[in-house]
Design a protein around this nucleic acid. Structure first.
Lengths: 239, 239
DNA sequence: CTAATAGTGTCTATTAGACATTATTGT
DNA sequence: ACAATAATGTCTAATAGACACTATTAG
């Protein structure tokens, strides 16, 4: 019988089967009345030249957690720093990558368009792409599946939370936020119903400022602490 | 410039960093008025002798998907065949396993106690353990985190769906199902409210049979197709 | 003044909680 | 009859949808 210490002395990682481990991130935002996802043009094989999600191999040395790896690879590939990141799901199979058994831990987040910097549009090979135009793009690997899953998850959250607020620059108007919810849900929401939820939740603070574009000025709000954990007990109509 | 074919010819998986990839499964059931999780006693290092979730290394040859690997390893370690399995989350970090960078894709499912077979109690090293008694057990790795996350997820689902029905043997009574919901939510639910939901959803079919234990016989129900996708628009009270 | 957008009033419909009442069994 | 459990009746409270109405700005 060996002790755990003895066991570790004789253990060699190379004796175990090798699985490719990558992390990918679905970053979504709302800009010019559209939901958009951040994509990069693949510089290397496989699937070179196709657009795909920012991500890459897990780096054993520098990455101490999966989340760190996801953030690092997004910054490395796009220059964009996501304000937070959460786990979406994990894909993996024998055939999804020609190099062998491969698994990808997929993260997702919403972020304000402005936080990605205006330079984004000038960088070759990095772009915010409208979800509506995605069908025409032949994305790398199974990345379009991950995007679909992320959007579906945020659609659900739009029904019972204010999570979509993370796609906006602060401060924002109630209409701004409602538009993001509408884009996710796929249909209009009653203004009255939406404002009632803003008031009932107490999760949006009136800044006292207002913004005028056309018509009556709109009150500007910012998020209160804990908004990410707030859930309504009743959903908004989903169809 | 090389083609993708050329690239694959010269590609060697061994040149890439090795990450340990395991799958683990949180199987929950409801038995004798308690929620229980299926655990196994670890036969090998590391953490030998501790109780932990059934799971194991991804086997490149036999496993063609993550889900398959999870099911295979549950059956191998426990003899129990889970009727379905879904992805919960993925844990990974540099330090969670002394053998090196390690990641575990965690699956979860609810299943009827009876489906695990009565032999379960006679097998050394495999047991259904009540969640209430888990604190006294020092589980391997971060398995208690995964159990906590699974229970929290099913608690949420108990608020807006009939997913907890998968912990029951069919047919079952409305009270059976309500008890599972109550165990997950942590407090009683109004019988009237619960029955209204059963009727409104149309997801539970009256079998015409009934079961008598003490008092008035209770109607036996079975699930209708699509129950796993059904969501109430309003939640049950959560505290 | 008009157009446009923000925001409110108010009625209805739905559905959960509370809790009393009735129904059906075994002993 | 009585205890135990199942199932229903019914009132109230909360909250979303519908939609008309008022408020405030630019030009």
């Amino acid at each position: 019988m060996t002790s755990e210490t003895d066991f570790l002395k004789t253990y060699k990682a190379e004796d175990y089967p090798i699985v490719l481990v990558t992390v990918d991130t679905v970053l979504l935002t709302y800009h010019e009345s559209e939901l958009k996802v951040l994509l990069v043009k693949r510089a290397n094989h496989p699937e070179k030249g196709k657009w795909g999600l920012p991500g890459g191999f897990l780096e054993q040395d520098q990455d101490k957690s999966l989340e760190y790896a996801a953030k690092r690879s997004v910054i490395a590939k796009t220059g964009v720093t996501p304000p937070y990141i959460e786990q979406l799901h994990t894909l993996g199979s024998k055939n999804r990558d020609p190099r062998g058994w491969s698994t990808s831990i997929v993260f997702s987040a919403l972020m304000p368009y402005a936080a990605s910097g205006d330079f984004i549009n000038t960088v070759e090979g990095v772009a915010w792409v409208a979800l509506n135009g995605l069908d025409e793009l032949d994305l790398a690997f199974d990345h379009s599946d991950s995007i679909r899953i992320a959007v579906e998850r945020y659609r659900q959250k739009a029904l019972y939370s204010f999570i979509p607020v993370f796609a906006l620059t602060q401060p924002f108007t109630v209409t701004d936020l409602r538009k993001v919810h509408e884009a996710l849900i796929g249909h209009d929401i009653q203004r009255k119903s939406f404002i009632r939820r803003v008031e009932a939740s107490g999760m949006l603070k009136d800044t006292g400022e207002s913004r005028t574009e056309r018509g009556r000025p709109a009150t500007l709000y910012k998020t209160a602490k804990g908004i990410e954990g707030y859930r309504f007990v009743r959903n908004i109509e989903s169809e």
